[in-house]
Computed example of a mutant assay.
Amino acid sequence: MNAVDLIGCQVVDPHGRTVGRVHDLVFRRTDEGDGVLPRFELMALECGKAGVGDRLGFMREAMAGPWPLTVLFRWLSRHARVVEWSEVTRVGPRRIEIGKPRELVHRSIDVLPA
């Protein structure tokens, strides 16, 4: 499976309710590897409406930018969700199923383990 296969997929909870479409992937660098190339592990899928503000870091609590941009980007991404990869139960063509109800899915990547 390639990352491009996940981007744009619809994410649904166990009740068939839409969580959102995958717009970004969250990776963590691991110490494992062959010593030449770094290795990365998929941690989460970012779903819902988000965009450049999230990619610039405005959704993270530690970000302190110009307050109008912070407010704007947070408002635009108010329905965004972060689905931990460990919650994924099935990956099909253009559809990803998770084992957690939509209302229990995180709204920030800050809650992911380091």
Score class of each variant (00 low, 15 high):
residue 42 L to Q: 04
residue 99 G to E: 04
residue 97 E to R: 15
residue 9 C to T: 13
residue 13 D to S: 03
residue 109 I to T: 14
residue 20 G to Q: 06
residue 102 R to C: 10
residue 111 V to K: 05
residue 68 P to M: 00
residue 104 L to Y: 09
residue 33 G to H: 12
residue 54 D to K: 07
residue 100 K to M: 15
residue 41 E to G: 02
residue 42 L to I: 08
residue 55 R to F: 10
residue 41 E to N: 05
residue 32 E to F: 09
residue 75 W to G: 04
residue 49 K to M: 10
residue 94 R to W: 03
residue 32 E to S: 13
residue 108 S to D: 02
residue 108 S to H: 12
residue 90 R to M: 09
residue 59 M to R: 05
residue 62 A to T: 08
residue 112 L to A: 08
residue 55 R to I: 08
residue 113 P to K: 10
residue 13 D to G: 02
residue 68 P to I: 00
residue 29 R to N: 01
residue 73 F to Y: 15
residue 36 V to G: 00
residue 84 E to R: 15
residue 31 D to Y: 06
residue 96 I to Q: 05
residue 44 A to K: 03
residue 112 L to N: 09
residue 97 E to I: 01
residue 9 C to Q: 08
residue 41 E to Y: 03
residue 52 V to E: 04
residue 9 C to R: 11
residue 79 H to S: 14
residue 76 L to D: 04
residue 77 S to P: 00
residue 70 T to E: 12
residue 66 P to Q: 07
residue 63 M to C: 14
residue 71 V to M: 11
residue 65 G to P: 02
residue 70 T to K: 11
residue 49 K to P: 04
residue 75 W to I: 07
residue 71 V to S: 07
residue 106 H to Y: 04
residue 105 V to L: 06
residue 57 G to R: 05
residue 8 G to R: 00
residue 76 L to E: 10
residue 111 V to M: 05
residue 27 F to G: 06
residue 52 V to Q: 03
residue 36 V to P: 01
residue 46 E to C: 13
residue 7 I to W: 01
residue 103 E to S: 13
residue 11 V to G: 08
residue 95 R to P: 00
residue 40 F to K: 06
residue 16 G to C: 06
residue 7 I to R: 01
residue 9 C to K: 11
residue 93 P to Q: 10
residue 51 G to W: 08
residue 47 C to E: 06
residue 8 G to Y: 01
residue 43 M to G: 02
residue 114 A to P: 10
residue 82 V to T: 14
residue 73 F to R: 01
residue 2 N to M: 04
residue 111 V to F: 07
residue 68 P to H: 05
residue 43 M to S: 14
residue 69 L to M: 15
residue 86 S to M: 04
residue 28 R to G: 09
residue 90 R to Y: 10
residue 106 H to K: 03
residue 57 G to S: 07
residue 45 L to V: 05
residue 16 G to A: 07
residue 90 R to V: 02
residue 84 E to N: 08
residue 87 E to S: 15
residue 21 R to N: 13
residue 60 R to N: 12
residue 60 R to Y: 04
residue 110 D to T: 11
residue 36 V to F: 03
residue 87 E to F: 12
residue 1 M to L: 04
